[in-house]
Nucleic acid binder design. Structure first.
Lengths: 224, 224
DNA sequence: GTTGCGACTAAACCTAAGTATGGTCCTCCC
DNA sequence: GGGAGGACCATACTTAGGTTTAGTCGCAAC
């Protein structure tokens, strides 16, 4: 994508490049990881505590978080739960010097990408980061599509939403009309408006949008 | 759900009831788990080795597998990998007396439901089993729907499949006709045949089927 | 009070979808 | 060589989908 990249100085960060965040109270660990990631060209930002991380404005690029289980105030696991509750879904890689199996299980159940015991091989960490970044990239792509669809859906009037639900459920215009008690022509006009507002190029297109938006669940469809 | 259950003798198994499989080389562990599960009304079948389990014909009901990490010949983790490779997707709950974190991570990454360290509380095991059975039930339901759809799709002729792909992608009959080089009327006839064979009640219905079948990926749709 | 908008509708019109009926051509298989 | 089935097409017809134009009604904001 970026041409003439070889000429760029290594410190010049591209706004599209992924970022690795590291939280550890041990400065030597932070530096070691920072060097490791920079050596493979990854932007890295380190923090001494979970609190500092939260102060930092969330980056709008694929990223992941390296977390020590044992953090200054909050445990890494509790911090993971906090982030989830706050709707922050950054992939997490745990490190630990003295973790146990229940901790590991809890972290993995909560969606952690990996759980590395110190000392770990650099390559294991790099592999985990690659997986985590890929996962975040996919998640962000999906979130973006969903946000756009929700934005379009929000421009629909209540009636249009209702019509969209029934139309994508497979009802004919006349059936929709009977269902909501209006004339068929009215449904047609709503329907045209829906297609324009949702920027749907065809009915199948609209149906797929409805699926992504989770519209019309709890009514018969493609089951057997 | 089941009425008049109290009158049934505990040994009378309903063919729809879930089953818990236990593999452990220690007979006392097998008995203890068997008693635990039976005490809550769960059908339980135990095995002394992975080999014995494989001899047993797979049950066609929601089930899960309790596995000791340390098995006679094969390790529990390797057995998990074997099952996955063989396409057997039964949810697994691991038990261990002397496991470590890398084992735990590997098991969880491979989809294990839980990883319990001995001694564990009965309630933890029961909770894990409940989760596992629920997971298997969902998976089986989805697999059943998918199998039915695939079965219907298999009855389509190559031409019909092609038309279905293009129609569910949102092309009009005349566009499909131009695309494959036939008359519009021919497309209409194929289309009618498709609706009958797939038992689709409407175009949105067919579109959802196509989605589940993964048809027509790699062409523009509901993106922004 | 009038402007804007959502919801509704009619009439007229056009295109798309779907269903017979009837038929050709080809290929594979018994 | 006769039958089955897939693919194809024409004619004729019906129903469904969709747009344009034009207009009513009610309500909330300015």
């Amino acid at each position: 994508m970026v041409t003439g990249r070889a000429a760029s100085p290594p410190t010049q960060a591209n706004a599209e490049d992924p970022i690795v965040f590291v939280i550890d109270d041990d400065a030597s660990v932070r530096d070691a990881l920072s060097n490791l990631f920079r050596s493979v060209g990854l932007r890295t930002v380190t923090f001494g505590s979970a609190h500092e991380f939260l102060q930092h404005k969330p980056a709008d690029v694929p990223s992941c978080l390296i977390l020590d289980i044992r953090l200054p105030r909050l445990s890494g696991l509790d911090f993971q739960a906090e982030l989830a509750k706050a709707g922050i879904h950054i992939p997490i890689i745990f490190m630990t010097g003295h973790g146990d199996i229940p901790m590991t299980v809890r972290a993995m159940k909560a969606g952690a990408v990996d759980f590395l015991t110190k000392p770990f091989r650099d390559q294991d960490m790099l592999d985990a980061v690659t997986t985590a970044i890929d996962r975040d990239r996919s998640r962000r792509d999906e979130a973006k599509v969903l946000a756009n669809l929700r934005g379009a859906f929000a421009t629909l009037t209540p009636r249009e939403r209702q019509v969209m639900t029934l139309v994508t459920a497979g009802l004919m215009n006349k059936q929709v009309a009977a269902e909501i008690g209006v004339a068929e022509i009215t449904v047609k006009i709503h329907r045209g408006q829906i297609m324009r507002k949702m920027a749907a190029k065809s009915l199948p297109d609209l149906v797929r949008m409805a699926e992504i938006l989770g519209i019309g669940r709890a009514s018969g469809g493609a089951q057997t």
